[in-house]
Design a protein around this nucleic acid. Structure first.
Lengths: 221, 221
DNA sequence: TAGATTGTTAATCGATTAACAATC
DNA sequence: TAGATTGTTAATCGATTAACAATC
């Protein structure tokens, strides 16, 4: 049974791809992106692996779930592998983002080069603080929180980034669930419940810091 | 061979604990933290597991690497389990943080409740833009970038958070490596090289977004 | 006591790695 | 051609889960 997935047209997905593989594909993509900018034309699984600190077989195995992209004896064409990965990850099509909350942090996202480069376009912003709504100098439209349901259209607003304090996050996810939001990334340090058909991920710096403090102690005792 | 680790005094570490386990411990800790605030006195592996969307055995297994913290037939005391996890993760002792770069994002960190609650204290800030150095209204001292080596003391500044654009990150990590910095968390979307004795982690929102777009497509086709 | 829940050993499952044929 | 490197099958390793004894 070949491991072809939804990227190869006409073939059904036969295998569940692990989160680890998807995360690594996302990482390869980011490196290929940089290589392309630096006008590097060609790379190998060994080179990619070395940059990411993993093994070359892992790189080839990850790719093999989705097809064959390289050239034996030669390696990979940076630009075309990057495009293939974009296709696999869905980054070749455009994605509409909405930001809910965020305050000062919001501008970091809005100015983010990486989002722009990857077809992730911030379309709408929702803000609790009415002062911030009024005095906003954002390039995107800012709405008050109570217009969430009225303004969001899951058909064009694909991903919500919630940057609100932990106690407020669950209620917003509930509201987004009701209108059929497909994907939510939230920054708060807490767990949440979400509908089954919603993709929810968390980007919580305190988890990483907790891992780091453990690892520092592990090394130094 | 019992799985006791460096938290139980007098016993040597006998087993390498996986990153997955450490990440989950950090997640349990965050949930126990919330429970404690809500005056919840007692919990079970089943409850913790349900909140995090994993299995109860997983919770008990993770904990078992470090000792026995529960009471058969009863469960876990929220406060004491939280304290034990803090000890394991190293969050019972104080950690000095320095922030390098960050601009507006820095204030998000400086005002972060989670850091304060977990003995992670931001001590120093380094800034590229001289205007921001001058006009800073931060509660912590802000230095220009060229004083990095002069002002940082790895004995009290344990973790550096680098919030600079991708091209600038590697050079700063090199400089921090030379003065013996133990741990670095950087936000940029790129890979870096670091000395072996340095704990380096990445918190890159574009990786998570790449995973999300894949998962949304996987569900909707 | 009976019911509940932990902690742990053994079994299973899945992810990573090794080996190697294919081929540029 | 010989050397390099991919793609893939099989073997290994490690993480998760199942089963269950311990005990509150």
């Amino acid at each position: 049974m070949s491991g072809n997935n939804h990227n190869e047209k006409g073939k059904l997905k036969t295998e569940k791809i692990s989160d680890s593989t998807i995360r690594r594909l996302s990482i390869y993509f980011r490196t290929l992106n940089r290589m392309e900018k630096q006008d590097i034309k060609r790379t190998t699984s060994m080179e990619l692996a070395e940059i990411e600190g993993i093994s070359p077989v892992m790189v080839r195995k990850d790719l093999s779930f989705f097809g064959t992209f390289g050239c034996r004896g030669v390696g990979y064409d940076v630009q075309s592998l990057k495009m293939e990965l974009a296709k696999i990850l869905g980054l070749s099509r455009g994605w509409g983002l909405v930001i809910i909350g965020g305050g000062r942090f919001r501008n970091v996202l809005i100015n983010s080069q990486i989002l722009k480069e990857n077809n992730l376009v911030i379309k709408k912003v929702f803000e609790t603080d009415p002062e911030l709504v009024k005095n906003s100098d954002d390039q995107v439209k800012v709405f008050p929180m109570d217009q969430l349901e009225a303004q969001i259209n899951p058909a064009e607003d694909h991903i919500a980034i919630i940057a609100l304090p932990p106690p407020e996050v669950q209620a917003v996810i509930d509201r987004l669930g009701k209108i059929g939001m497909k994907a939510v990334l939230y920054m708060a340090s807490r767990s949440v419940k979400a509908p089954d058909n919603m993709v929810v991920m968390n980007q919580d710096i305190s988890i990483k810091l907790g891992m780091m403090t453990y690892k520092v102690l592990e090394k130094t005792g």
